[in-house]
Computed example of a mutant assay.
Amino acid sequence: MKIFACLPAFILIAGCNSPSESPNDKPAERAAAADSGTLRFTDAKATTPFAEPPVLRAQVILAQLGFSPGVIDGKEGQSYVAALRGFQAAHDLDESGKLDDATLAKMQQWNNVAAMRLVVIPAAFAAGPFVPDFPDDAADQAKLPALGYRNLMEALAERFHTTPETIVALNTPETPVGAGKVLRVPNIPDVDPLAPADDARGWGATLQKLGVAATQPAADKLVVDKSEGVLKAYDADGKLIALFPATMGSHRDPLPIGTWKIQGVSRNPDFHYNPKLFWDVSENKEAQLLQPGPNGPVGVVWLDLNKPHYGIHGTNEPHTIGRAESHGCVRLTNWDAARLAQMVKPGTAAVFQN
């Protein structure tokens, strides 16, 4: 049975803003760029400037600096407020959580960072493979060779740290999505591939598909703060260098308060699904071994803690981060989990606090 299936050559999406292409940006040139076998998104030229929504632009700047707003959607939600506070704390500003005058003045250092890009979708990215009928049951998931994205739109949303709905809103009802097509997206830059010697388990391609650079500042300590709903990373001098919105525990499975440490980092991990560890799963279910993939239960990363069965990991539902509960572990978006994986090492302290 064929498990994976690609999308048609293109699909249509609905939206409100029209991407403008330069007459010099010829379809043949776009097709040549898209067919090069690369995961890099070529920038297309626009004939008219984009409107720059201030919140969207602030989210993009924050994301590029490591103060993640979660999904980039142009909305002033709790994750955006937390990211602003993290940025403000790192730059000795009043932690208002607002895009106030002092914060805007500080962000002028990154005045050259645009809110959006107009990109050409590369054929290698559009090729998938995808799992359009992704099963809910773990036993059915265990039959898949990889737990990949359902479709191209879902993959594009993760690549640009956003949601399918936001991509729809940034484009027009007639915008086709497929290899060689032009699309307006949040400005998350491309990253270089890993050298073959460093590319275990396809991690280099995963980083490219998430727009996460392999080189990140080193974290000396992590703090998971339940009251703020965030994970903070500090360097050896105690400086805040990154902040990520997180889902952490529930009433039934509370966050394990205490000081732990990272025991290991598993990139593109297999997942050993044990129903006995989950109170909300039937005892009649059998244990399963699930293959790697961004739509697996722990996403693309598992950071193992020295507390059995607990870790920090990615998710297959990035829009729920900070808005849902977990089974006690700490969940991040896949792109934030991948970034964190490049910042830590075995022995990194992880403080869980209320």
Results as ranks from 00 to 15, higher is better:
Lys276Asp: 14
Thr333Glu: 11
Asn187Ala: 15
Gln78His: 01
His272Asp: 13
Ala205Ser: 13
Glu52Tyr: 05
Ala126Met: 05
Thr48His: 09
Ala214Gln: 11
Thr175His: 04
Val55Thr: 15
Val120Arg: 01
Glu95His: 01
Ser250Arg: 06
Trp203Ile: 09
Met153His: 02
Ser250Asp: 07
Pro8Ser: 12
Lys345Ile: 00
Glu174His: 05
Gly314Tyr: 05
Val344Leu: 11
Gly202Gln: 02
Leu183Thr: 06
Tyr273Thr: 01
Ser79Cys: 12
Val185Arg: 05
Pro297Ser: 09
Thr48Asp: 01
Val230Ser: 07
Val119Gln: 13
Asp192Ile: 10
Asn316Pro: 01
Glu21Ile: 14
Val131Ser: 06
His313Val: 00
Lys232Asn: 15
Ser22Lys: 02
Gly293Val: 01
Gln263Glu: 15
Pro8Val: 02
Ala5Met: 04
Ala197Val: 07
Ser250His: 05
Ala123His: 12
Gln288Asn: 08
His251Ala: 10
Ile312Gly: 00
Pro49Tyr: 04
Glu165Leu: 03
Asp25Gly: 04
Asn295Gln: 14
Ala169Glu: 11
Ala28Phe: 03
Pro8Ile: 02
Gly77Tyr: 09
Ala246Gln: 01
Lys221Leu: 14
Ala90Tyr: 07
Ser250Phe: 00
Asp73Ala: 05
Leu12Cys: 11
Gln109Leu: 07
Ala146Lys: 03
Asn334Ile: 04
Leu170Gln: 10
Pro23Gln: 08
Thr206Leu: 08
Lys307Trp: 05
Ala9Met: 09
Ala155Asp: 02
Leu147Val: 03
Ala287Thr: 10
Asp25Gln: 06
Asn24Trp: 10
Ala28Pro: 03
Ile257Trp: 04
Ala218Asn: 10
Gln291Pro: 00
Ala195Glu: 10
Gln141Met: 13
Leu183Ala: 06
Leu12Pro: 06
Pro275Trp: 02
Trp260Tyr: 15
Asp225Trp: 09
Gln288Ala: 00
Ala115Asn: 05
Asn187His: 15
Pro69Asp: 05
Leu170Thr: 07
Leu99Met: 13
Gly148Tyr: 09
Ala14Ser: 15
Asn354Gln: 10
Asn112Ile: 02
Pro297Cys: 04
Asp73Trp: 02
Asp253Phe: 14
Tyr234Asn: 06
His161Ala: 11
Phe10Ala: 14
Ser326Glu: 11
Ala341Thr: 07
Ser96Arg: 06
Ala233Ser: 14
Lys261Phe: 06
Pro256Ile: 11
Asn112Lys: 14
Arg339Cys: 05
Gly37Phe: 10
Ala179Ser: 15
Glu76Arg: 09
Phe352Asn: 10
